[in-house]
């Protein structure tokens, strides 16, 4: 540590390093370096003398004789290795930490929508998975814009998301109605876009009572842990 200090401040020996220098506790290389610097630096010499004087003064503080006898008259009552109070405080702290963690995890999952997604995802439509796994239904060439949007493997860039993709992206569109693009891509039809509401099929669970209950429980555990600790100290 002192070596780095010395390297950073080559101009003078730092006070903290001087203390270790006086006790011969610097690394040998730092000792030599400090000694060499001290020979030609009046300022560091003055610092060294002041520090030496301080240590000498501290050593002049008398060692006081005891004014009474501290021997024990009788055997002290033995103390249990792990007092009940300490165990109780430890358990309360553990419970508080666990409940806060559970509350935070649950609240985070709830707010991010992960819980709703897991619990309310409806079964996928029969046709959709097979369509997405096999060859995509190419309807784009019938549209006027299709040739410009074709990729190298023949898949149109503007292909609307399949039904399975739509299910995965469902929660992002929960609050808004969506236009079903496939409705307007059937050849020979001029159909108006069909309005669908994805959230209608996936009602979200009301999880706020669980959040509230977990929050209250965590708060109670924390208060109990703090109260127990204060009681133990008193």
């Amino acid at each position: 540590m002192f070596w780095t200090i010395l390297r950073r401040q080559p101009a003078h020996v730092p006070r903290l390093a001087l203390s270790a220098f006086l006790d011969g506790r610097l690394e040998p290389r730092d000792m030599d370096r400090a000694a060499a610097h001290l020979e030609g630096c009046p300022r560091c010499q003055a610092e060294l003398r002041a520090l030496e004087a301080t240590i000498a003064l501290m050593r002049r503080l008398p060692l006081l004789p005891t004014t009474r006898d501290f021997t024990l008259r009788e055997r002290p009552i033995p103390v249990a290795p792990a007092p009940l109070a300490r165990q109780a405080v430890f358990m309360a702290r553990l419970a508080a930490a666990a409940s806060v963690l559970v509350f935070a995890l649950f609240l985070g999952a709830d707010l991010s929508g992960a819980l709703g997604r897991l619990s309310t995802t409806p079964p996928l439509p029969q046709a959709a998975p097979s369509a997405s796994r096999t060859k995509p239904q190419v309807t784009a060439p019938t549209t006027p814009q299709a040739p410009d949007e074709m990729t190298e493997d023949g898949q149109p860039q503007g292909t609307p998301p399949s039904s399975s993709q739509k299910v995965l992206e469902g929660p992002q569109q929960e609050d808004a109605t969506a236009i079903n693009p496939s409705a307007g891509l059937v050849p020979g039809t001029v159909a108006s876009p069909e309005i669908v509401t994805p959230t209608a099929a996936r009602p979200r669970l009301a999880l706020w009572p669980v959040d509230l209950a977990l929050g209250i429980m965590a708060l109670l555990f924390v208060v109990a842990a703090l109260r127990l600790k204060a009681l133990r100290r008193s």
């Binding site: 903290l16 203390s19 002041a50 501290m58």
Partner: peptide, 12 residues
């Protein structure tokens, strides 16, 4: 060592 250095410096 470091605590002692700081203490001595403060006392100085």
């Amino acid at each position: 060592k470091s605590r002692l250095s700081r203490a001595r410096s403060a006392m100085r």
